[in-house]
Simulated scan of single mutants.
Amino acid sequence: MNKSERLFALLTLLRARRYAVTARVLSEAMDVSERTIYRDIQSLQLSGVPITGEAGIGYLLDKRAHLPPLMFTEEETMALEVGMKMVRAWSDKGLAKAGQSASAKIQSVLPDHLKRQLDQIPVLVPDFHIESDFAAASETIRNAVSSHQIIYFDYLSGEGVATKRCVQPLGQVFWGKVWTLVAWCELRDDYRSFRVDRISGLVVTDRKFELSDEKSLRHYLQRYRTFS
């Protein structure tokens, strides 16, 4: 990586941080020496980038500063386009439309050589959206998650047992084949997961729920990783 690429990568790391970060952390993230980080920070500051801080304490980029938009590398651009196609193919109608719009915006500002690269991506992902009961339920669930509204639905287990559920929806997880709803079951007072394609009769109620450190999608995933 040459110096300009390194400065760009350093600026990207600082943009992503909400609090001051030390040169040691930055050097480990970029696989360079702390001395190199000190020199690069000074170069950015001399060029007018509003970075505050000092050696031994940490550095912070002023979030109020206006910086030019970031440009992606060829592989990053390919990754974004493949991801957008996956969203368009396997998510709900609302996200599929947003993915299409985001992809168009990104491509509209890409240089010609990157646009040509996108036409030759060696990874094929069908990006057509298929209307289905699953997609409709998924979008309704996503909206209920965002608004913290309790939902009711009928659920058919893998053994063919039909039950009625009342849950606090926390999020959806895609496992490469099916989407599952992660929720807090009010009856069991614990996490439960449900395959979205087995949900029917979905009703969003006016009842609200609150998240907490012990009840959230992040907490569920942390616990899942611990148990796995």
Rank of each mutant, 00 (worst) to 15 (best):
M1W: 07
K3F: 04
L14E: 07
R15H: 10
R17M: 13
A23L: 03
R24E: 15
R24N: 15
V25F: 05
V25R: 10
E28P: 04
E28I: 01
E28F: 05
E34P: 07
R39Q: 13
R39V: 07
S43Y: 05
S43G: 01
L46Q: 13
G48C: 04
I51A: 06
I51F: 07
T52A: 14
I57L: 14
D62M: 06
A65W: 08
P68Q: 14
M71C: 09
F72V: 12
E74Q: 12
A79P: 01
L80G: 02
M86P: 00
V87A: 13
G94H: 10
A96Y: 01
A96T: 03
A98H: 11
A98L: 12
G99F: 02
S103T: 05
S103V: 02
A104S: 12
A104E: 14
L110C: 07
P111W: 04
P111C: 02
D112E: 15
Q120N: 12
Q120C: 09
L124A: 11
S132V: 12
S132P: 08
S132T: 14
D133Q: 12
F134C: 11
A135G: 11
E139V: 05
T140V: 14
R142Y: 09
R142W: 06
R142V: 04
N143Y: 07
I150D: 00
I150C: 01
I150W: 01
I151D: 00
I151N: 00
D154K: 14
D154E: 13
L156V: 15
G158Y: 09
G160H: 09
V161M: 11
A162W: 05
C166E: 15
V167E: 05
P169G: 04
L170W: 05
G171L: 01
G171A: 06
G171M: 01
F174V: 00
W179G: 00
L181R: 05
L181E: 06
W184R: 02
D190E: 11
D190W: 02
Y191G: 03
D197S: 09
S200D: 13
T205P: 05
D206M: 08
K208I: 12
K208F: 11
E210W: 04
E210Q: 13
L211S: 00
Y220M: 02
R225V: 14
R225K: 09
F227W: 08
